[in-house]
Design a protein around this nucleic acid. Sequence first.
DNA 1: AGTGCGATGTTAACGCCGTTAACTTATCGC
DNA 2: GCGATAAGTTAACGGCGTTAACATCGCACT
Lengths: 196, 196
Amino acid sequence: MPRDQYHHGDLAQQARDTARAVLDGHGDASISLRALARQLGVTPPALYRHFSDRETLLAELAADGFRQLTAALHEVPPEPPRDALIGIGVAYVHFAHQHPNCYRLMFGGGVLPRGVHSQLDDAGRAAFAVLEHTICRARDAGYLRNDHPVPQLTAAAWALVHGLSLLCIDGHLGPQVMPDLLAAQLGALLLDGTAR
Amino acid sequence: MPRDQYHHGDLAQQARDTARAVLDGHGDASISLRALARQLGVTPPALYRHFSDRETLLAELAADGFRQLTAALHEVPPEPPRDALIGIGVAYVHFAHQHPNCYRLMFGGGVLPRGVHSQLDDAGRAAFAVLEHTICRARDAGYLRNDHPVPQLTAAAWALVHGLSLLCIDGHLGPQVMPDLLAAQLGALLLDGTAR
DNA sequence: AGTGCGATGTTAACGCCGTTAACTTATCGC
DNA sequence: GCGATAAGTTAACGGCGTTAACATCGCACT
């Protein structure tokens, strides 16, 4: 229990928390190490004792987001297959809608490179694995067509929920859409097909 | 035909071109007005005679991207409906794959706000209209189910191609995927359904 | 109890950025 | 020619990420 003077003991976590608040409120572009330091009553270089650079801090936030997402997906009941698949999709879009700026950071592409921050890559793969596992189970249970390879089915599902998440987040679908409902409807559409 | 001294006559277009090259090569984050001015042999404030700020320049690039995309979608043969729908999807993903950084700028969300740069909004709507129109035609021709509203079908199609584009661009689907082929396969999957 | 050392801060500085104000020069219509 | 205006310049402000060099705190060991 340190006195909050020189060593105030918890700078790393406080920095993460504050940065996360800024992220949620104003987006990753608004996260500035100098502003962060100011807000924490510390000089800018102090943060470099805990994060090798700004990008690493962002990567930690994104990895945390992936862990949250993974947890949310794990809460979806695994049976019956159809409900599990649609439930995963709804949970996915729901997460993105609840944490839009975090989601954009996680999947931004331009801002965080792959293959550099290993814990970020791992956390991302873990989230993906839940989706893939659900699809495998559904196919093994005979619910999905087996004339298409699993990676293709997975790509379709992921593309649909990922695209829907971003379109919702960015307001491209108009203001009054209800993401959870729409996710369920589009999930059903993918399962049943749009042609007649 | 100005001597390239004080007024070199074409700064605005040259700036757009150079910025576009930087965008394609290194992403929007690497576009710096100062570096741009340096590269064009001009002082930084000169650019402000032609662009009210950095964001406006980026918006012009993004709007140009939307116009390119719209043109590409218009080249897809409109018949028969199934081929038109899949063709639109393939062309869409193909564009994103060819101009990843431009596509990210167009749909980045965090970087360019809606409702601020009207020409950008217009260009975006025009691209969307092509997709929606194709779906309307297919439904009117009796090819698509009519127990779902058009906006829902449109959202499904758009979400799929948008999501697939970004997943490809960001390398989330592995290195050896072929975007055009995958787009055609997933398009068929959405039309025919994944359940059996 | 003293001491040395590593962890954790600080100060000062570098070079980059976007942007603005005030000024200068070129070009074009009359 | 000349005057308005378009298109450049110089100089400056404040913010940013990051680094090097230095200072201080607190714990582990003698």
